[in-house]
Design a protein around this nucleic acid. Sequence first.
DNA 1: CGATAGTTTGACACAGCTCAATAGGCGTGG
DNA 2: CCACGCCTATTGAGCTGTGTCAAACTATCG
Lengths: 240, 240
Amino acid sequence: MRQDVHNSSIPVLCASCEARHKGICGALEPDQLVALAKTSYKQKADGGSELIGDAERVESYSNVLSGVVKLTKTLSDGRQQIVGLQFAPDFLGRPFRSESGINAEAATEVGLCSFPKGAIERMMKASPELEHRLYQQTLRELDEAREWMVTLGRKTASEKIASFLLMIARHIDPTADPDRTSATFDLPLSRADIADFLGLTIETVSRQLTKLRADNVIRIENNRHVVVPDMERLELRAGN
Amino acid sequence: MRQDVHNSSIPVLCASCEARHKGICGALEPDQLVALAKTSYKQKADGGSELIGDAERVESYSNVLSGVVKLTKTLSDGRQQIVGLQFAPDFLGRPFRSESGINAEAATEVGLCSFPKGAIERMMKASPELEHRLYQQTLRELDEAREWMVTLGRKTASEKIASFLLMIARHIDPTADPDRTSATFDLPLSRADIADFLGLTIETVSRQLTKLRADNVIRIENNRHVVVPDMERLELRAGN
DNA sequence: CGATAGTTTGACACAGCTCAATAGGCGTGG
DNA sequence: CCACGCCTATTGAGCTGTGTCAAACTATCG
């Protein structure tokens, strides 16, 4: 745990920022934080807005401060697959490559803290600890991607839906007790997004959600609000 | 390109090793290489042998020097998914975590150069350049995993097979011209492995290979040997 | 040669897709 | 306040790609 004895020397912008604790900024010394904060700026993006284009030259990196970002890939005929979701305080961007190869889009309203590409890359060279944190996040993302490959390749539609709900329940609220027996949350994705995430159609997603509801594994209010009275029952449906 | 003016000071073990060029050992100074070589050992593993067990405590890392390693995940009821393939000179192991969460198995006969876990981790702390190379490989693996998520989630069986053949053609021979118009190679995986990689059954894999052969997109000799006369035609079938 | 493991082929079933209609939520404007 | 349109989600009916189960084929090796 980082001690904030030098709180006075920390940029106002960063004072209450989550990225300074669990995010990458925790790797930085106060003076480095000051230097980086000079070139960084916070911004809000509406749900649906594109953050990073596929072939577009990327000139900035960001920390996700709130909301959910979806990373997508699209085939030439329009078929789309969500290949990752990012939550606060994830780092958004592909270091060491000017073209990302994927699209990043705000799934909900998203709060970002953005930096020019060069600033991060210079600081990475100066601070192995910063690169270490980025490396750690990339390893976590790789673990998650592989977990989803199993879901995409080998699970049934209903197992996919259960796995998805479980994943959201675990990621959406960082402050929640990881061992809690019940959960309540708002889905950050539309049915179409969920379908793109799980390699299904909207209709199949809808039908499986209806089935889970009929079996009293979940309750749904207003299409987006989900209640899971018993996480274990949901885990059972996820088929791991 | 690394200059080998100090070749005499390089351990015999490493003298002709590919990992010293494109692999992670290229990050090391001669004296570091000597230190690491003291604790490392080369070994061969037969196709089918398990290299890293799922929940097993991992005590060593390796460089893949030859052959192909498959990384798999298995659900409790036995359904299996291959979540990655590793070729020379990839680094094999999950840093910063004692349990890997995945199985690594030799798909073909595999040559490895192994190090005790601690040796690599100590050297990583001392050499940011080493950690940088590992980070770079992990980023590449993440890119590949996401590419496969699209294949698993959104492509048809025949597109999956074509994508798989294309991927093997590109990875199996590091010395081949990336822009060549035809290719010839041995499949490193059995039909069952290909099925586990693509989220299909053996039968579907077999049928789709037969179809590609019937359409003269590929020729197959002795079950494992594949000839692709026209890479572009194969690319067309992969559906990107 | 026969035994074994891997592969191909065939016939059929079914999970999930497609197309189409209906229902619900929500903002806008009369 | 209701009427309307728009968008998203649900439900239904039928179709199809891929899975399942079973049998035949092929290669390899003692």
